[in-house]
Computed example of a mutant assay.
Amino acid sequence: MAPQIAQSERRTSVDDVFDYLHEQIVTLGLKPGDKISEAEIAKEFGVSRQPVRDAFSRLANLDLLLIRPQRATEVKRFSMREIEKSRFVRAAIETEVLRRAAANCDKMGAARLNAELILQEAAAEAKDFEQFGKLDYNFHKTLCDIAMADYAFDVILEEKAKVDRLCMLGMDKEQRMPVLIDDHRDIAEAITAHNADGAIEVGLKHLSRLDDTIARITATNANYFERPG
């Protein structure tokens, strides 16, 4: 049942529906292949079908919904091609970000990275998975800031969002956080030492953490992926 969300002058019913469905999809409350009804969502939120249709369109633009005329709308299945494309783009962008960050990092940049790590460790200790996810994004944004390429974070943000659902299906959250923190710490140490090659090596390893997840999901839940051809 959709939550009763108080409307405000700044928010629209489209925003409310979008935010609710987006959260459900990225946290796997709605799984790849699940069908959702425009009429049912409209009824749950007490709105007309137009704002729901607009929210569906926004989610489709994020590659999270598959809208098919005269057929049920469904949560988008994973596409291996899109995953590979996303990782290719991120690897290219983040390699350059890490190279520039290593060249530009000063005492202030090193202090920012250290502060980010302290916050991540606190979130892991508290088992605050949601906060850790936000801090993970903040760490990559900080790297872009140090690299003097804040615009690169827009690309990283878009591509990272495409695989967040896969990450949710990955290793146990309590196990995953320490592994990511270790990666982040190694990246920060390399950046602070102006070791671009070392930072890039760890950064690419960080991106490859998804490989085991993909292999496991294709073996246990092949229906979560689009069929080739």
Results as ranks from 00 to 15, higher is better:
Arg112Ile: 00
Ile93Ser: 02
Ser86His: 05
Ala60Pro: 01
Ala110Gln: 07
Lys43Trp: 04
Glu116Phe: 03
Leu113Val: 00
Lys127Cys: 08
Glu96His: 13
Gly109Trp: 05
Leu135Val: 09
Arg77Cys: 11
Phe45Lys: 01
Leu113Met: 02
Leu66Thr: 15
Gln50Ile: 14
Ala91Cys: 10
Pro69Trp: 00
Glu125Ser: 15
Glu121Ser: 11
Glu44Lys: 06
Lys85Thr: 14
Leu65Met: 06
Leu119Tyr: 11
Ile118Phe: 05
Phe88Asn: 15
Arg71Gly: 11
Pro69Lys: 00
Ala111Leu: 12
Arg100Thr: 05
Glu82Met: 13
Gly109Cys: 07
Phe78Pro: 04
Ala126Pro: 04
Ala123Leu: 02
Gln70Ala: 15
Ala55Tyr: 06
Arg58Trp: 07
Asp54Glu: 15
Arg49Ser: 12
Gln50Glu: 14
Lys127Met: 08
Arg58Ile: 07
Phe78Lys: 00
Lys127Thr: 03
Asp54Ser: 11
Arg90Ala: 11
Ala102Ser: 14
Val89Asn: 04
Ser86Glu: 05
Thr95Gln: 08
Arg49Cys: 01
Glu116Arg: 12
Arg53Pro: 02
Met80Ala: 14
Val52Pro: 03
Phe129Arg: 11
Arg100Lys: 11
Ala72Tyr: 10
Ile118Met: 07
Ala124Arg: 01
Glu84Ile: 12
Phe78Asn: 04
Leu117Tyr: 02
Arg99Lys: 05
Asp136Cys: 08
Lys76Asn: 01
Phe78Thr: 04
Arg68Val: 14
Glu74Ala: 15
Glu116Gly: 05
Asp128Trp: 00
Ala92Trp: 02
Arg77Gly: 06
Glu94Lys: 05
Glu121Asp: 13
Glu82Pro: 04
Leu113Gln: 03
Phe88Ile: 04
Arg68Ala: 13
Glu44Gly: 09
Arg58His: 10
Glu96Met: 13
Arg49Ala: 09
Gln50Asn: 13
Tyr137Asn: 14
Asp106Met: 06
Val52Phe: 05
Ile118Trp: 02
Asn104His: 08
Lys85Pro: 01
Glu96Lys: 13
Arg99Glu: 14
Ala123Tyr: 04
Ser79Trp: 00
Ala110Gly: 02
